[in-house]
Design a protein around this nucleic acid. Structure first.
Lengths: 217, 217
DNA sequence: TAGATTGTTAATCGATTAACAATC
DNA sequence: TAGATTGTTAATCGATTAACAATC
């Protein structure tokens, strides 16, 4: 069921793919060879219908009467998520969060390789984080061009973030993983994935509060 | 327009609240006194209709012919998000990410106060992170009970996360901010907010790839 | 072949947007 | 009062779930 046309996939579906990938990886590691949408639905606590709909956005990976081959499906999702090709990253902001991400080994395992780290602070420049030298911000543009960089990770305070994002875009970056608490304004075609930690914490706070209110009634 | 009944609010709405809060805070800091849903919609790039619908879930904060008072709305959303009451946190896992979060001053400013830090690693125990002593995991339960802890932040590898979450629940924690790459299984009423960084990165990777594919056609 | 389970169409549910009467 | 803009109802759109024919 190959098709040349690229169907528009909703972000709701995309958001679920990594979770499928995680569960299928675990099943694979446990040596499970095949699984039906119903069994998977029980494990993952979603409907079997949704699972089948989701997978079928990308073509038919299953087989009637059999289910899905775990390893095949796992690999297909990896391909869909772009995990079969290597990505070169730069990390901008070598503060606590930047260092935490740089030290996160699993990214590298998945093909996300940090090539360069940048920071404004003169005292950080020249230091090494997991073997990667921290560079001056001035080198940013040339480094991106010379090292075939795919993705920029923004872990700087929001004050500088918008300006840096502009520089990134001008240097040809087309994916930004943004940890700064601002909305970046990028031209269409440049992908931004926001991780707004404080917003996530506020959501938790809301739900905690709300539940306590409900209990009182 | 006060109402005793607690209307069920969808998580879609809840997810948008922190962003409103951020924009209103900025407007407030700029000295803007009032704003209409239409003006806000232009700034935030959402529809005015959605803004009005969202706010009206919680009561009428605006005024016909005038719009919304920025400061009032800002404070109301803070209340809704539970930012007017203090929250006591424990941080479990004093690795890179845990330290990054502990050093993130803005949480404290918003009323999220880290009271205790815990780690399994003997060599970390006794150290201080931003003035907070790292404790042994054995102390976890008693510390939670004695220090009126609200929220637990889980920044440990996924291997231990499920077991620790169980201990947290048994100690009466009812909100977990989970950075471990597992789905926690908690009883109803315990709130979990997941921050799955690798899943976020995969989503970015997907969108990057997909865009590149589309370009090729 | 009979049983199982997918792929896919149709039905339902929920969220977003549009429209407009109410009202400041 | 007239103009502006909310609060809210109605219409639309999209996502999820259910159902079932196709098929391994």
């Amino acid at each position: 069921m190959e098709s040349k046309e690229i169907k528009e996939i909703s972000q709701a579906v995309v958001s679920r793919l990594p979770r499928y990938y995680r569960y299928l990886g675990e099943l694979k590691d446990e040596g499970v060879e095949r699984i039906s949408s119903q069994d998977l639905s029980r494990i993952m606590k979603v409907t079997a219908s949704q699972i089948r709909q989701d997978f079928n956005n990308f073509g038919g990976f299953g087989q009637q009467g059999y289910g899905y081959n775990v390893e095949l499906l796992y690999n297909e999702i990896a391909k869909i998520l772009g995990l079969h090709s290597k990505h070169h990253l730069v990390l901008i902001g070598a503060g606590n969060l930047g260092q935490a991400l740089a030290n996160y080994v699993n990214f590298e395992r998945r093909g996300f390789i940090i090539k360069g780290i940048f920071d404004q602070k003169e005292e950080l420049v020249g230091r090494e984080i997991r073997g990667i030298k921290v560079r001056r911000m001035e080198e940013l543009e040339s480094f991106i061009r010379e090292n075939d960089i795919d993705i920029a990770v923004l872990t700087i305070p929001k004050t500088g973030a918008v300006a840096v994002a502009d520089r990134l875009v001008r240097s040809g970056i087309n994916a930004i993983w943004n940890f700064a608490h601002v909305d970046l304004n990028v031209p269409e075609g440049v992908q931004v994935e926001n991780v707004h930690l404080s917003e996530s914490l506020m959501k938790l706070s809301y739900n905690l509060n709300r539940y306590n209110l409900e209990k009182e009634l």
